[in-house]
Design a protein around this nucleic acid. Sequence first.
DNA 1: GAATATGTAACTGTTGTTATTACATAAAAG
DNA 2: CTTTTATGTAATAACAACAGTTACATATTC
Lengths: 140, 140
Amino acid sequence: MAVHVLAVLAYKEGDRVTSARLAASVNTNPVIVRRLLLSLQRARLVETRKGAGSGSRLSRSPGRINLAEVYRAVEDVEPFASPARKANTACPVGHCIRETLNRVFASAENAMERDLEKTTLAGVIGMIKAACPGAAKKTG
Amino acid sequence: MAVHVLAVLAYKEGDRVTSARLAASVNTNPVIVRRLLLSLQRARLVETRKGAGSGSRLSRSPGRINLAEVYRAVEDVEPFASPARKANTACPVGHCIRETLNRVFASAENAMERDLEKTTLAGVIGMIKAACPGAAKKTG
DNA sequence: GAATATGTAACTGTTGTTATTACATAAAAG
DNA sequence: CTTTTATGTAATAACAACAGTTACATATTC
């Protein structure tokens, strides 16, 4: 969903868009969008201003924002399940498996992020326009 | 958790282990383990027999099972969130973004799996033994 | 000062995962 | 053949994560 919001922002290059408008595009609630924008603000991906006639816009050009940044801004937790209960330390395997797997999974996540780095928001926009002929700068 | 169970099985190379014993190692319930084993059976990663003195064991040597196979056997759903509500089709971005992002994410997931393929169960065992000096074939 | 839009809290609902209990069934052991 | 053992599976509960909703204070522009 984060990518969707950013794509809309990229679509309106430069223009400020309100959370209400973004929410309408994603078909969700403005509050959800605002919470998402907070994460994106922390990552310096969007700039938001309060008050009348304001809203959010990208803080960089769409060609200089890749999806790995978006992923990191939004996904705060590990994609791999961390078991709630601790492993049985009496078991020789359970004793040290956690940190071993963490290393392996970190490597896998890294590989994924390197792949996401190859796609920028501008690239996403381009793909959308290619897939959808009727995509011109209109309603948002 | 799936990797943990398989690691224990790899640890006991060849020996059949009951779900109760595996559950004790992972510190969870035998039923959880059995459900997990069902997925692993479907993926032909483990062999399970019923009855007294039975249990599960790897169907291949630990060196010939990589973590990408385990991942595919266990993770049936996409790691990326699919929004519950449909995107607003009136929005030119929302209209075609779904399939565009699906392609990008599929590529990222593929990159991750290719990385996981580089690690076998035997490799995991090796790392555990290296990290934990006191790992000998004991209680399970 | 009025209008507008964000920041944020509180609460609900849904979904997915883990956990627990219970029981039928299959296979081995005696 | 009967007993024992262990899996397969259903029903249910506990729980966390996430999306949604309402409500309101605050900041900014006009």
